[in-house]
Amino acid sequence: MIKLSITALLLAASVYGGSLSFESGSIKAHTEVFGDSSIDPVFKKATSHFSMGDSVTSLRGSMDVSIGDFVSDNSKRDTNMHETMESDKFPKASFEVKEVVAKGGDNVLLKGTLSLHGISKPLSFEGTLTQDVSKVRIKAKSSIKMSDFGITPPKMVFLTVRDQVDLNVDVVLKR
Results as ranks from 00 to 15, higher is better:
Ile2Gly: 07
Leu4Glu: 05
Thr7Ala: 13
Leu9Asp: 03
Leu10Tyr: 12
Leu11Ala: 15
Ala12Glu: 01
Ala12His: 05
Tyr16Arg: 12
Tyr16Pro: 01
Tyr16Thr: 11
Ser19Ala: 14
Phe22Ala: 03
Ser24Val: 03
Ile27Tyr: 01
Ile27Gly: 10
Lys28Gln: 15
Ala29Lys: 02
His30Gly: 14
His30Phe: 13
Ile39Val: 10
Ile39His: 03
Pro41Ile: 03
Val42Tyr: 06
Val42Ala: 12
Lys44Phe: 13
Lys44Tyr: 14
Thr47Lys: 15
Ser48Arg: 00
Ser48Pro: 10
Ser48Trp: 06
Met52His: 02
Gly53Asn: 00
Ser55Glu: 08
Ser55Arg: 14
Thr57Cys: 03
Thr57Glu: 02
Leu59Ala: 00
Ser62Ala: 11
Ser62Asp: 13
Ser62Gln: 07
Asp64Cys: 11
Ser66Val: 08
Ser66Ala: 15
Ile67Met: 13
Gly68Cys: 13
Gly68Ala: 14
Asp69Cys: 06
Ser72Met: 04
Ser75Glu: 08
Ser75Leu: 02
Met81Arg: 13
Met81Asn: 09
Thr84Phe: 04
Met85Asp: 02
Asp88Thr: 12
Lys89Arg: 12
Lys89Asp: 10
Phe90Arg: 06
Phe90Ala: 08
Phe90Cys: 10
Phe90Gly: 11
Ser94Lys: 10
Phe95Ala: 11
Phe95Met: 08
Phe95Trp: 11
Glu96Leu: 09
Glu96Asp: 07
Val97Ser: 03
Lys98Asn: 14
Val101Phe: 04
Lys103Thr: 08
Lys103His: 02
Asp106Met: 00
Asn107Phe: 09
Lys111Tyr: 07
Gly112Ser: 05
Thr113His: 04
Ser115Thr: 15
Ser115Met: 10
Ser120Leu: 08
Ser120Arg: 06
Ser120Trp: 06
Lys121Ser: 06
Phe125Tyr: 10
Glu126Ser: 13
Thr130Lys: 11
Gln131His: 14
Asp132Thr: 06
Asp132Met: 07
Ser134Cys: 09
Arg137Phe: 06
Arg137Gln: 11
Lys139Pro: 04
Ala140His: 01
Ala140Gly: 04
Ser147Thr: 09
Phe149Trp: 06
Ile151Gly: 04
Thr152Asn: 11
Pro153Asp: 01
Lys155Pro: 15
Lys155Tyr: 13
Met156Pro: 08
Leu159Asn: 12
Leu159Phe: 15
Leu159Thr: 12
Thr160Tyr: 09
Arg162Ser: 14
Gln164Cys: 08
Gln164Leu: 04
Val165Asn: 01
Asp166Gly: 07
Asp166Val: 12
Leu167Cys: 05
Asn168Gln: 15
Asn168Thr: 15
Asp170Gln: 05
Val171Glu: 07
Val171Ile: 08
Val172Glu: 14
Leu173Lys: 05
Leu173Ile: 00
Arg175Gly: 12
